[in-house]
């Protein structure tokens, strides 16, 4: 589908602009979510993607606390303590919504019924290993939630993250140094600086934003595959 088509494409460099804003990044990811798919958007930044999905595309959002057909955040009188998303934020229901218990909700994820999930990440490795649940630092309290189930069970695992840490270290790495969430599970990585697809031939750069492919190669410690090479 989208990922396969992207593999054939050449790298598109948008070097004469800055990196994407987080909202632009959310909008960019929304473009790659297939119409009529069932999608789980991870807590935190991926939640913003919902604002950019085409209402006509018939995409149905899953929240792991037991709902399909989740609508936008609730405001004012819409707020109902019994209706929240996985981030514990009050949300609304859309026509055609369905509720179910937790074991059913995770059967949808673990049984391969969910088409796409978008997760945040501390690190992703060149082979698509995901690290997003624990820093591994002593004293830090880990919280895994549904991340390992989503990483293992969703049809496509997309990652939305910054490409560099605040100190400038790459988060797309040869091998994750943070504890893993899943092995070789990520199919695409969307960052403010570039969009990547994990392929059998290596990490393909689909698009860059505010950086050239050459600059990207200097800043990342992994081989990058491109139509430009």
């Amino acid at each position: 589908m989208t990922a396969a088509a992207a593999c054939d494409a050449e790298t598109v460099e948008h070097a004469r602009r800055g990196p994407l804003s987080t909202d632009e990044l959310a909008a960019r990811i929304a473009l790659d979510i297939p119409p009529r798919s069932y999608v789980n958007l991870g807590i935190g930044q991926p939640t913003r993607i919902a604002d950019y999905l085409d209402p006509a595309a018939g995409i149905i959002l899953h929240t792991e606390n037991g709902m399909l057909g989740m609508g936008p955040a609730a405001h004012g009188d819409e707020i109902d303590d019994d209706l929240i998303n996985a981030g514990k934020v009050p949300v609304t229901e859309l026509p055609g919504a369905a509720y179910f218990h937790h074991a059913d909700s995770f059967a949808m994820i673990r049984g391969g019924h969910l088409d796409v999930c978008v997760l945040g990440a501390f690190q992703v490795s060149a082979r698509g290993d995901l690290a997003n649940w624990h820093t591994g630092r002593p004293g830090d309290i880990p919280a895994v939630g549904g991340a390992m189930d989503l990483a293992t069970g969703a049809g496509q695992v997309l990652v939305m993250m910054s490409l560099f840490t605040r100190s400038g270290e790459p988060k797309l790495v040869p091998d994750c140094t943070y504890p893993l969430t899943g092995v070789a599970c990520v199919s695409r990585v969307f960052t403010h600086h570039a969009v990547f697809t994990m392929t059998d031939n290596g990490v393909l750069v689909n698009e860059t934003f505010g950086i050239t492919l050459g600059e990207l190669r200097e800043r990342l410690d992994i081989p990058l595959v491109s139509g430009l090479t």
């Binding site: 792991e64 937790h102 074991a103 909700s105 995770f106 919280a143 895994v144 390992m148 189930d149």
Partner: peptide, 13 residues
């Protein structure tokens, strides 16, 4: 603390 992935928690129960 026994940390359990949420799907495992539901399925183990």
């Amino acid at each position: 603390l026994e940390l359990v992935p949420q799907g495992n928690l539901a399925e183990r129960i």
